[in-house]
Nucleic acid binder design. Sequence first.
DNA 1: ACGTATGCCGCAAACGTTTGTGTAGTGCGC
DNA 2: GCGCACTACACAAACGTTTGCGGCATACGT
Lengths: 333, 333
Amino acid sequence: MNSSEPVTLKTLASELGLNVSTVSRVLNDPRGPESKWASRQTTERIFALAKDRGYSRNPHAASLRTARSNMVGVIVPRLQDYVLATMYEGIDEAATENGLFTVVANSLDVAATQRTKAEMLLDRRADGLIFGDAHLSEPYLDELAKRGVPFVLINRTCDGHVSVTCDDYAGGQMIARHFLATGRTVFGILGGAPNTSTARDRTAGFIDELHSHGVAVPEKRIIHGGFDAPAGQEAALQMLEAGDMPEAIFAVNDFAAIGALGVLQERGLRVPDDVALAGFNDTPLAAAVKLTTIRSPMHEIGRLGLEALQELIGGREVRSVRLEPTLVVRASG
Amino acid sequence: MNSSEPVTLKTLASELGLNVSTVSRVLNDPRGPESKWASRQTTERIFALAKDRGYSRNPHAASLRTARSNMVGVIVPRLQDYVLATMYEGIDEAATENGLFTVVANSLDVAATQRTKAEMLLDRRADGLIFGDAHLSEPYLDELAKRGVPFVLINRTCDGHVSVTCDDYAGGQMIARHFLATGRTVFGILGGAPNTSTARDRTAGFIDELHSHGVAVPEKRIIHGGFDAPAGQEAALQMLEAGDMPEAIFAVNDFAAIGALGVLQERGLRVPDDVALAGFNDTPLAAAVKLTTIRSPMHEIGRLGLEALQELIGGREVRSVRLEPTLVVRASG
DNA sequence: ACGTATGCCGCAAACGTTTGTGTAGTGCGC
DNA sequence: GCGCACTACACAAACGTTTGCGGCATACGT
């Protein structure tokens, strides 16, 4: 509440006529006031004084002593991205509940930056790391595993590492079934960044499901690029210029879908009458433009990601998790 | 690179036959290899060994000693919000360049949470705070100021505290002039959360500019609410049900504008022919739906916010900054 | 009456830095 | 040959915790 000298364990101890060790033990006991480290009386006096003086443990001193920071580092492609921002919110929520705190950094989806940021967080003594930007081949993650650094992946998987993701393959299948059920027969895909598991699995689910119904998607109607709106625009233009517009397009990401949507409408194509369109993730953006999409449990992925990391840090065995998505049908298809 | 024992100053010192103090001074000297704390020879040996052993300073020990964490806390209404996420990116970018790191927390725009999160960050010994969620009346900020905690506001102002913002008033004026220039005469406002400076100033700029051209906006056509899409939808519905649709609507936020846009189009109103619409901030969403809006320098606001905070922490005097916005005309108005 | 358990608490050694205060040795001016 | 200023280091005391090890009572069982 007030002035000068910071209040430390020593302050409290001397004022109570106790030793710092006793105060420390009582204050740290998970049983709280039921602590067995001191008499009922003493325990209460300690808590009372701590509260009165506004004591707060110095985390640096504690971390120095225990060699644990209670901090976890999070690396995402970009926080501006609603999807990753939401996952991060989930992570941070769970972290706060567990007395941890998080530090987040953008990698811009480039490997070198990912490494730089991760090492920066480790220099800060992060207890573990969460990556939202894994690629299909990740020498750096292999190296980290070898070094014994605890980490988990979210959103995207990578062989041999623990991850918490949406069942992207199932999501792709759902869109395929929906398109078939509404009578479409010719399909195109905006495939996103090909070196990510999300792009790969969503595409594969879509294609496999079509295939099992006797429909094939020719290579030329699978257009790769990025996950953002400009990438979607470019892909749509490419389809238009090829003069080969499918009856339905599956974009593996809402933003790419929105980008494509803009181009299609500008060129006078009616959505969904001339061409149906679906995205992936169900961002607010999708709702605003009436886009059919797959809702993925982004917040939950973040939460589970943190919980998995905590298990890992605690030295326990952890298995990857894949959460079920749901189909959201809107006006676009 | 490898195993077991962590490498500390002591490790290096004893291996070099030096005292830890010498190693510490050399390694910390801003002049780097030109350090004057040891002979040229010794300096080089120190740097070489540090690099070879992969030494990294233990920040907890350093912070314990210096009572500075090199960490700044950032509090935003919600990281999912593109606007705040972008500002945070600016903050973090500048922080990284200055050897600081940032921790961010959501306040959900509620005062009690803001306080809780801020205190949590201060418990973690943040050197200073940046608030992106200030309200017009902020007893907590006054209290913090009294306690001598260094902090700055971004995005929103609050009397008596240092802030870095967009010139919201000027932005409101720009929209007003644009609407007038395109021949509109009857206006409505989606005013956002009334207890924020952004809502107040954008609205005031709009109204004052109209007023100076002899046009008034009656109270009943100023609808308050939130900054998100649902709030915009509700406001638009309210206007529709009042049977009193203006020729042009200024929403003080892109998301609210998008929400309104959806409702208007659903009701068969043509935008901009029946009613023109403008938002504020120029988010990608705005570009995607062709919304006329005001571009605010969000990233730069974040950067300058951090720099201002650094000055404050350094004990220097700091003045508030207001950055100029620009008008972006698109199809909606 | 004696050993042993248990309750309650103190001692002191770390953890890895930073930094104020020495202090040998060297070179210089005179 | 003395004082003086440097150079190039070393010493040691913090910073605030956590935690292994005791230790002194009192209670309890036999």
